[in-house]
């Protein structure tokens, strides 16, 4: 990973921690964020809330951990899970079931229930996908202390969560989605399914996908140039693979838009594979243009094979050791 991305990642991790700590604090849970190395206590837990996509409920999980040594702890025993129906909400008996399951002493059940309630409230209020106190320790003096907190805000809910940390990646143009992966072949697609299919094909020919730039629905011709410019400008990218199903746009119009976008002296090769209305005319326009760094593929397999070949060539050119 290049420095830019590492720095960005570090920065985001720090902002996430600060966001979670402040959020928990406002809800009445103080996170002991001072560096800890070893923690003595009678009990250590990971207490978490997550959205279950299969049941549509919120799962509260209490997982018993080993004592904290060298700043880390391990999962021991079986996690206890309680599922909360959103319209009914968390009931006290569910918090008691968690307490009983992980052997919280009976006289501390009320304190524990209070923490579970606050965690659940944070999970809902923050539009979180995953919320956790990790580890949550019960000290020998019967005090509950949380040494770490996580709140993973749903990206779709960022608009109503002020202060939520942004995703750790270069930001794509408006209304274009970007999924980064570790490789050097970026696909530009109009639909995530097509993007996955493309990444799978690249992998099959021994290449490594750099992820997808997804123009999704909406006006393809308007999004094409900004999407290609963004993809070609990403660090580490050696090849851009444009894979489209034309939908309501005609392939010959797309071909003309590609040529119009293409800088005369582009260094990043572009491979185009299109399907849909007028795709033969579209391919013909690209072939006739005879640009040095433009390759128009017959099908996806052809496109992927070509992309991997060009990416390997470019790696050698740029002085990467061959693998």
């Amino acid at each position: 990973m290049d420095n830019f991305q590492t720095e960005l990642h570090k920065h985001t991790a720090q902002t996430s921690r600060t966001f979670a700590r402040d959020y928990f604090l406002r809800a009445g849970i103080a996170i002991e964020s001072e560096a800890f190395w070893e923690v003595e206590g009678q009990l250590a837990l990971r207490l978490s809330a997550s959205n279950d996509r299969n049941t549509g409920k919120v799962n509260l999980t209490a997982a018993p951990l080993s004592p904290v040594r060298d700043g880390a702890s391990l999962l021991i025993g079986t996690p206890i899970v309680e599922s909360v129906t959103l319209s009914i909400g968390l009931r006290d008996f569910q918090a008691r079931a968690l307490a009983l399951g992980v052997n919280v002493p009976t006289m501390l059940w009320d304190d524990f229930t209070d923490i579970v309630r606050k965690l659940y409230a944070c999970h809902l209020n923050a539009d979180s996908l995953y919320t956790a106190l990790d580890p949550l320790v019960l000290t020998n003096d019967d005090l509950w202390i949380a040494y770490g907190g996580v709140i993973e805000v749903d990206p779709n809910a960022h608009f109503r969560q002020p202060g939520a940390p942004p995703p750790p990646m270069p930001l794509p143009p408006e209304r274009i989605n970007y999924v980064p992966l570790a490789g050097d072949i970026i696909s530009v697609v109009n639909g995530a399914g097509l993007g996955m299919l493309t990444a799978d094909a690249v992998t099959r020919y021994g290449g490594v996908s750099a992820g997808m730039v997804d123009m999704s629905s909406g006006s393809l011709l308007e999004k094409l140039a900004p999407a290609l410019t963004f993809a070609a400008s990403l660090p580490r990218v050696n090849v851009v693979l444009l894979n489209l199903f034309a939908g309501m746009t005609r392939c010959d119009d797309i071909a003309r838009a590609v040529l119009q976008w293409m800088p005369a002296e582009t260094s990043v090769p572009l491979i185009v594979r299109m399907s849909g209305y007028d795709n033969e005319e579209g391919k013909e326009i690209l072939d006739k243009a005879a640009r040095l760094t433009l390759y128009s593929a017959i099908d996806l397999e052809d496109a992927a094979r070509r992309a991997v070949h060009l990416a390997n060539e470019r790696k050698v050119e740029r002085g990467y050791p061959s693998e």
């Binding site: 999924v179 992966l181 570790a182 639909g191 995530a192 996955m196 990444a199 799978d200 992998t203 997808m212």
Partner: peptide, 17 residues
């Protein structure tokens, strides 16, 4: 079935993928 190359935990464009 697509998405065989997706690394664990990475969202592949669809919120559910």
């Amino acid at each position: 079935i697509t998405g065989g190359t997706a690394p664990q935990g990475v969202r592949m464009g669809h919120a559910g993928a």
